[in-house]
Amino acid sequence: MTEASTLERKVASAAKAVSTRGPGFDRNYLPFVYPALIITLAVIVFPWIFTIYMSFYDWKIGHAREFVGFANFTKLTTDARFIESIGHTLYFTALAVVLPVIFGTIAALIFNERFPLRGLFRAIFILPMMATPVAVALVWTMMFHPQLGVLNYLLSLVGIPPQLWVYSPETVIPSLVAVEVWHWTPLVMLIVLGGLASLPTEPYESARIDGASAWQMFRHITLPLIMPFILVAGVIRMIDALKAFDTIFVITSGGPGTASETINIYLYLQAFSFYNIGYASAMTMVFFALIIVLTLVLLYLRQKAKWT
């Protein structure tokens, strides 16, 4: 009797579990998430909250801390070096978004075709994005060397005078962008390639019957259909470019002078060279807000592109 009723209950709960699948939230699965949630709270959510707390203190490692309210934030607005670093970050980001998106899209169109050894070439193409950034930065540092670097030698072959690359304030950011483009164009390629793979074939067939040229089909069918993917790639690229750290830090550490000092580099120096933890925390929050705002702007543009 009891056995039958427990069985009945089991079936009922199983049926409920099955029927509550699909759209909507199923509480029964929450325990699966708890262990990960605890870790996430400890190493991700706690640091967020603690950063907010620290940003209201004049806090230097090894010294007593003092509550200062919003003083760290007002200090940021008059910190010329910080404001300059915003400019460097935006300059770097603009180039490091646009160029990989263009090159990555072209590469995706090429890799979408069938040709011999495609898998091998694609594997080689994505190697840069998986390579260790410090190792990549080291090789580029040697390539950028003004006297002995291979880049100036290659330029001399085509008759271009030697450049100072990362050793001149004028060319340091474009040079760092070159490394970033080399490093992250594969990620854009992969995202756009995913979009190309999902394209329907019917519009092309009817366009071909109507006598459309290859360019017309690309311009009026392919491009609009993969635009959402290109924009997603752009958003991801922008977030990563704003946060770029490793290669810049290894190649120039923000130099020459402060010519390539981005927000992230200045933030690092404030926190771990000058040990101004409170001030760096305030800067982190402004930096995070900047990333969020720019991301939302791009997502808004994406939404608009969808409707028109």
């Binding site: 190493v43 991700i44 640091p47 620290m54 750290f245 933030l267 690092y268 933890i277 995070f288 991301t295």
Partner: peptide, 17 residues
Amino acid sequence: IARITPGLSYLIPLYIL
């Protein structure tokens, strides 16, 4: 969101901790 957050913003509080 964890993906968007700059790595340094985890590092400072955890370093203190």
